[in-house]
Amino acid sequence: MAEIDTNQSGDTRRDFLKKSTLITALSLTPLTVLKAADNKVDEQFAELFEKIPLNLKVNNKPFSLKVEPRVTLLDLLREQLRLTGTKKGCDHGQCGACTVHVDGVRVNSCLSLAVMNEGKSITTIEGLANGDVLHPMQAAFIKHDGFQCGYCTPGQIMSAVACIREGHANSKEEIREYMSGNICRCGAYPNIIDAIQEVKEKGAAI
């Protein structure tokens, strides 16, 4: 594991790297690794130390994985855990389609490296409903037709739930401002605002 917990400086890194072969491999620069792979020296070896362990919970289910550091939380969810409810809209933190909750806080999963979520608890759109019973926000989106194509919807809903929890849903104007990180190209905005306001006003536990 790439954790360094010591108060010493100087030789810390070297001492630490002695701990396991995996860690030793980490001391090689990626370019060296690449060169090894490039020359087809030992691709399996390369793969072994290109990946590092990651433990996290997704929708309350624990996962122990090995991932490349460059894998984003979004791509981990979609491509490896096959939780495709979280969407890729821009891959640069500019649209909000990939919004998930990390330890209860809404974030853009496209800009979060998966390995930075060690020990964290992730909630995606798939984890919002209680079995077959929709979360009140999901039901409100249906009632108010808060979507058309549906692609931004999981991000909008995750963001909407957080918006109320954060205490930023006290007026239409405030909701609009705090939901502005979620773009909807079909233009369902007014319906989304109505849905959030209704959930907030009904005061159901969310």
Partner: peptide, 10 residues
């Protein structure tokens, strides 16, 4: 929408 549940649940 007939596909509303599918769209809000992912």
């Amino acid at each position: 929408r007939v596909d509303g549940v599918d769209k809000v649940t992912g």
